[in-house]
Design a protein around this nucleic acid. Structure first.
Length: 492
RNA sequence: GGUCGCGUGGCCGAGCGGUUAGGCAGAGGUCUGCAAAACCUCGUACACCAGUUCGAAUCUGGUCGCGACCUCCA
């Protein structure tokens, strides 16, 4: 199997990937909290992990991809549960809220052509296991109960295990100082950096369960520790999430797992970077935000036109997952053209044939093909991998135009190109050909007739008729291109 | 305030000690009835200042600017 290198947040180094069990990979990614419509930033993160999942499958691994749905315990600043807030706002039962936005999330991820995870567990389905882990943490001496809530003892944990803050680069002494002001209204905690693993519920709280400590609900960080352990084991291969989750969420997750099982949950931690818009983080409060639907319809002051899901996805893949990605109209416009050129080349490629008389140009084709995989093996470098695809676009077009002699590549090489090029685009990068999708059989027949008539006019040098047909079609968003071997058309 | 990261040609965006990133836009050319498309050629960019080095966008220090996290966020 090809060597794969990953940038590991835990060690802050790029490392050769070694799975725990040869040929198998366990991957856990923190999923969304389903209390409102999906944010575009979520979309980028989950597209990034989908690409990783797809590529690992392509390399031949058997991957168990677990991505949770957070449906309890994720609190707002004022301490209110996000789901409860959504329930109040929409006048729904909490579980109706969860279902509504889970459905919406799935629909959006389908629109962006991502795979569903192998397992998609919900926090509320794992209350028993969460209670068990809380008990384990208490038994190991890292949890303490106060007024019905249970807290994780970060100071004791750090004194014994010396690893609190390793993932996020925090120093526990600083954490104690920094959050001192917040201590006043959280006096149940021994130390300000301690965090709740079980919370006693107020009487009006909508979602609560019985436990040895109180009628309450689990802490947000706990659910991921529990569900990753349940489905992937105490130690698994890859844990992912947005880099805004590094602290406190992932740091606390590590602490809980080490505290409960005395082992690191994941060998490799991967963090995706944020999606920006016009150079600033997307934020609802200052209007610097855009929804997927607004992008699809063009209904936003930030963009000049509508963009299709695949164009948006292609735009995102042109930057590396660990870099910020700045969503700007010019960038989207450029991505749209590049994406179309890629799709056109795919169509052109399907029609190429070679006699295989020579093989002088074989490496021109196999080189970029090989390099695509090499780049992807280098921490999923999609921008560089896509650059290799464009090298091939030029080759494909040159073969078609006759600028390069197609008979100078072997039958096998052309066959490989015709198999791998579309495979990399659709299977590895998950890009669908939206241009093709707009066509249908009936239109195909009509267009053939129209182009035949126009060809007759051209043969008679009747440019007036010929141009009239072309202009009228352009009005209907159909672009006619006159090539050497007749005319072709595409939907614009 | 603390921690971390970033500043690349008109725009997006890779690279992270010597070798063309790539896409889009722009200029010239080939082809074509014209156009479009396609192909070929082209710009010689790395915030600023100082240092290390035979050699720096890439390493070190400083300056300025931006961002993320520290409190809910993918």
């Amino acid at each position: 199997m090809k060597e794969l290198y990953l940038q590991n947040s835990l060690t802050k180094k790029k490392e050769l990937f070694k799975p725990i069990t040869e040929g198998f990979i366990g991957m856990y990614v923190c999923g969304p909290t389903v209390y409102s419509d999906v944010h575009l930033g979520n979309v980028r993160t989950f597209i990034s992990f989908d690409i990783m999942y797809r590529f690992l499958l392509h390399l031949g691994y058997k991957v168990r991809y677990v991505r949770n749905i957070t449906d309890v315990g994720h609190l707002l600043d004022d301490g209110e549960d996000r789901i409860s807030k959504g329930a109040r706002a929409d006048k729904l039962e909490p579980m109706e809220v969860v279902q509504k936005y889970t459905n919406g999330f799935h629909k959006m991820m389908d629109i962006f052509n991502t795979h569903r995870p192998s397992i998609e567990p919900r926090a509320t389905q794992h209350i028993l296991e969460q209670i068990e882990m809380v008990q384990q943490i208490i038994d190991n001496g890292y949890g303490y109960e106060a007024n019905g809530s249970v807290y994780f003892d970060t100071l004791k944990f750090h004194e014994e295990k010396k690893c609190y803050g390793k993932l996020s680069g925090r120093v526990i002494d600083e954490l104690l100082v920094e959050t001192r002001d917040n201590l006043k209204n959280q006096s149940d905690k021994k130390h300000p950096s301690d965090f709740a693993i079980w919370m006693k519920a107020a009487p009006e709280h909508l979602m609560k369960w019985n436990s040895p400590w109180s009628v309450g609900f689990p802490g947000w960080h706990l659910e991921c520790s529990v569900m990753s352990t349940k489905y992937l084991g105490e130690t698994f291969d890859i844990h992912g999430g947005g880099n805004d989750l590094k602290f406190p969420h992932h740091e606390n997750e590590v602490a809980q797992n080490v505290g409960a099982c005395n082992c690191q949950p994941a060998n490799y931690w991967l963090h995706t970077n944020m999606l920006l818009m016009n150079g600033r983080k997307m934020s609802k409060s200052d209007g610097n935000t855009i929804t997927p639907d607004q992008l699809f319809t063009g209904d936003s002051p930030h963009i000049t036109k509508a963009y299709s899901p695949m164009v948006i996805k292609f735009f995102m893949l042109q930057s590396h997952y660990s870099s910020t990605n700045d969503l700007v109209d010019d960038g989207l416009l450029a991505a749209e053209k590049g994406y179309r050129r890629l799709m056109e080349a795919q169509k052109t490629l399907a029609e190429l044939q070679t006699t295989g008389a020579g093989n002088e140009l074989d490496t021109d084709v196999t080189g970029p093909l090989d390099k695509f995989i090499t780049e992807m093996c280098d921490d999923f470098n999609t921008p560089r991998a896509i650059a290799q695809l464009f090298e091939l676009v030029t080759k494909i077009n040159s073969f078609k135009e006759g600028h390069l002699d197609i008979n100078k590549i072997s039958v096998d090489t052309l066959a490989r190109l015709q198999k791998d090029f579309p495979c990399y685009i659709s299977k590895v990068l998950g890009l669908k050909n939206e241009i093709e999708a707009g066509n249908n059989g009936e239109l195909e027949g009509v267009m053939q007739l129209v182009l035949d008539l126009r060809q007759d006019a051209r043969a008679n040098k009747n440019w007036a008729i010929s141009d009239k047909i072309r202009d009228a079609l352009a009005e209907a968003k159909i672009v006619v291109k006159d090539g050497k071997d007749g005319s072709s058309w595409t939907m614009n």
